[in-house]
Structures are given as C-alpha cells and as structure tokens.
C-alpha cells in the first residue's frame, strides 16, 4: 500500500499548547512547595492535600491540550 509523501492529513503534533504539559510534570517534583504540615485542609496536612490537588492540575492541563490540539476529521 503506497501513499504519497506529504499527505495532506498529516499535521505535525507540534503545538504551543503542549508546553502546558510541563506544569503538572514540574509541580509534584518540587517538594519545597508542599512539604509542610500547615495549612491543614479538612484535617489533611498540606503535604497530602496539595499533592492530591495536583491531580486536578494534571487533568486540567491534559484536557486543555487535548481540546486545543484536536485534529479535524
């Protein structure tokens, strides 16, 4: 099966939106941001609730990147 090079549907995966993915990669890897007991939230020390909150940051960023880089078919 041969298909000519430079097929029109081929768009690159490059997009400035992709940079947003760096946020949820960097945040959880910087312990000075969250390694403390105070402030507590619902009894959770900051160390625990902040890292659980980073999950939401991750979901938000990947969702935005997905929506903004969707290919039209």
């Amino acid at each position: 099966m041969t298909v000519p090079n430079g097929d029109q549907r081929d768009r690159s995966d490059r997009s400035p939106w992709n940079w947003l993915l760096l946020v949820p990669i960097a945040l959880p890897l910087l312990p000075f941001l969250f390694n403390s007991d105070e402030p507590r939230l619902f009894g959770f020390p900051a160390f625990y609730w902040l890292q659980l909150a980073f999950i939401a940051v991750g979901v938000t960023c990947t969702t935005i990147v997905y929506q903004m880089t969707k290919r039209r078919r």
Binding site: I25, P28, L29, L52, I55
Partner: peptide, 21 residues
Amino acid sequence: GFFAVPYTIVIYPMVFLVLIR
C-alpha cells in the same frame, strides 16, 4: 510511601505526546 501519588501524576502529561507516536 506517598511517592506513588506524584509518580502517577507526572506520568500522564509526560507520555501524552510519546504514546500517540
């Protein structure tokens, strides 16, 4: 032991572009 949480947060944005390739 809580390392499992940051581990499973960074994984998805990290492989987002890699896995589709």
